[in-house]
């Protein structure tokens, strides 16, 4: 799923500026699962904003609304009837959602309440961890199912570097060395001989390097 962090409250307040009628838009997908932008978090941010403006003694209106998704036009379109009642849409979706809402309502201010961070997994309730960088050319078959691009701080294709110590990365003692994980897994699979293979220079054109990406499946198009 896509994981994010909620922005600091003061940053959000600063961003909103003098806009006092806010449509706070949550998303029921990834950001709900990672506890950053679902119905619950919409409720919390709305409450914080109300407390803030009440304390300041100023009028403020926030409409709480959570969409099934903010990455599909059909759902975004559901707020069209009342979007005009608000000065700004404050979206709690990932960066994709925020942009798609902005595309749908061209004359409406749309702002992000979330910093989108990574593609990851739930390690345990309340803990998420990065796994993929969407490079567009997966090599997990060669690396024991552990991605060196996402999980090595230097994205080394032929690691580990000299900073791997006790299974941890030199960049942060809390972070596992991706290459240690690869070697452990290859060992468990009885495939450590694969470590001897040199992974060739990567063609980054499948990644963001070739510009914004688009995918089309003709058979699914209407």
């Amino acid at each position: 799923m896509i994981v994010g962090n909620r922005k600091e409250f003061q940053e959000i307040v600063g961003m909103l500026g003098s806009n006092r009628r806010v449509l706070l838009l949550g998303c029921n997908e990834c950001v709900t699962v990672c506890g950053v932008g679902g119905e619950k978090e919409v409720g919390v941010l709305a409450s914080e904003l109300r407390i803030h403006w009440k304390t300041a003694g100023e009028t403020f209106e926030v409409k709480e609304h959570t969409l099934e998704r903010q990455c599909d036009y059909e759902y975004i379109d559901q707020v069209r009837g009342f979007v005009g009642d608000y000065d700004v849409i404050l979206s709690m979706a990932c960066g994709a959602g925020v942009q798609y809402v902005a595309e749908a309502y061209k004359t409406k201010l749309v702002m992000p309440a979330v910093n989108t961070t990574f593609l990851g997994v739930t390690l345990e309730q309340g803990v998420w961890s990065e796994r993929c960088q969407g490079c567009g050319a997966c090599i997990l078959d060669m690396t024991g199912g552990v991605c060196p691009i996402a999980r090595c701080a230097k994205s080394l294709m032929n690691g580990p570097c000299g900073g791997s110590s006790g299974g941890k990365c030199e960049v942060d003692k809390e972070v596992d060395c991706g290459w240690q994980l690869i070697i452990d897994r290859l060992t468990e699979l009885g495939q450590l001989d694969r470590y001897e293979d040199i992974i060739p220079v990567k063609d980054w054109r499948s990644s963001r390097e070739a510009g914004p990406r688009k995918r089309i499946r003709e058979d699914l198009r209407l």
Binding site: I51, K54, T55, A56, G57, E58
Partner: peptide, 9 residues
């Protein structure tokens, strides 16, 4: 509580 009556104003 400062929430009451907008004490910041």
């Amino acid at each position: 509580s400062p929430v009451k009556g907008g004490s910041k104003k």
